[in-house]
Design a protein around this nucleic acid. Sequence first.
DNA 1: CACACTTACGATATTCGTAAGGATT
DNA 2: AATCCTTACGAATATCGTAAGTGTG
Lengths: 306, 306
Amino acid sequence: MLIDWSVRDLDVFLALADTLNFRRAAERCHLSQPAVSGVVTRLERSVGSRLFDRSTRAVQLTAVGQVLLDQVRLLRRQADASAQAVRDVVELRAGRVRVAALPSLAATVVPRAFARFAALHPAVRLEMADTLSGPAFDLVRAGQVDLALTAANPDYADLHYTPLVSDGFVLLLPASHPLAAAAGPLRWADAADLDHISMPRPTSVRQYAEAALLQGGRRFEPRFEVEHLATITAMVAAGLGVAALPELAALVAPSAQVVQRRLTAPDLRRPIGLVTRQGQALSPAALAMVALLDDEAQRLVPPPGG
Amino acid sequence: MLIDWSVRDLDVFLALADTLNFRRAAERCHLSQPAVSGVVTRLERSVGSRLFDRSTRAVQLTAVGQVLLDQVRLLRRQADASAQAVRDVVELRAGRVRVAALPSLAATVVPRAFARFAALHPAVRLEMADTLSGPAFDLVRAGQVDLALTAANPDYADLHYTPLVSDGFVLLLPASHPLAAAAGPLRWADAADLDHISMPRPTSVRQYAEAALLQGGRRFEPRFEVEHLATITAMVAAGLGVAALPELAALVAPSAQVVQRRLTAPDLRRPIGLVTRQGQALSPAALAMVALLDDEAQRLVPPPGG
DNA sequence: CACACTTACGATATTCGTAAGGATT
DNA sequence: AATCCTTACGAATATCGTAAGTGTG
């Protein structure tokens, strides 16, 4: 006895067990009455036992049919639950999105996108890992996050990178600093000899600052090296120095005592993008998240042309 | 999204989710590799979402596929359990047989058949209702028992009757009674004037005794009327009278102080048979029980020719 | 170029509806 | 006569395997 029933078969069986009438069961299943007869005959052959005692005048379940009825009810319920579970994921009523992001993005773009996403899809769980760029790639590669929002990095060619925005650099100055009042953008060369506060070498903030000054033939040797963006802002506000930061990083901890001035020459931009696993499609929820992340990134960092 | 998967579809999905390789999944399902490809494509169309991310070099579950996998595992387990439940009933590893029987059969044929049945099929539950003939038919009609073992009764033409055996009548005498020592069978006329102990009018025992004497033009007026066969035997043993009983009824409570003599002229026989519902097949277990009941009945009441 | 999945296509099997048949009330 | 289930049969559909196609390492 090999059972290879389809869900439709289950429904026909249930309809007949319920109505005990082939014609009404056929109506309920949108089939002709002989079709129901055929299905039942086929099911009985597959089970190896009669399921219904039937004369032209009465239809009733056999003992085997009774036992099967309970089982089929369970199966049908389970099939419905399965379909619902899949629908929930496809239609964003369930699921999970895990995002890794650089600190400057984890405190700006991501929270805004998460807030909108949570309002739209409250049942989808959201997780964020705020990490440096390297670990962000590693998390994607290991499948521990669905996507990472970070600066481009050619070292991770096995992962898929989609550019989103690029943010320019600004110099944070104490409001009392002479350069704070100057009109127009500053040049990197103007900032080279000031006391700088920056972050450790592995961070993109530090990497880009070093690269910018290197183009002018200068080495970048910050006076202070701290871990957190909020610390930098506070130290600048206290007059301990200046800090060259990407725009988004500068947004993290705004301060009334700190002035931002755009840095040019070179007009270096930090490319920010989405990192995902090669050849692995994003879940429906992750796709929706990408749209919101993109939108929020565009709002926070208007393209240089605009 | 309409899900109409067959069990085979589940197996193909599980095989691919397990192997992550179309060729090996095809082997496991005894299909060609393109057939697996087609099944998966069809499933994905029915779900409305990709289930596997696949390039020519790697196959892996999507987020939707992951969710579905858990569901399908449950479904497949449930389908197996259902098939097992049906097999159990068909192969007598589960189920129930409910029998109604006259007191004389409930204490003779049925216990022997039950004992053999229980030894062969220990997991099948057995139930017996020892009732008079009328209630036995009623229990069958109401579906509260699978079958009844009782004397034929033309009043219940809507039920199906299968003759099994017929038992002749014997006269129970105190061992000290003059007729106890006589050679050869007794005639009903010989017993007519003795003090009789019998059962109430609705019983087959009483009905047949009255009918037998009526053929000789005599009325049957028992001196004592009691409810239970064991009481009859005890009263006969005490010398209070004689009792005309069907063979099987006489077997119920044997006593050393009681002698049985066959009654003839007329050679009345009580037809015993199986009563079942019209147009309702017996369960596999009930069918097996019928065979044993038949066998035990033949053993206890050898046909008159033998 | 070897391996893996997809597409194309013809053969086979299954499923379904219409029509006719048989049984029961 | 009306109702109900089964059988017969032709048509539409689905499924499968072989063979060819496409992409990747």
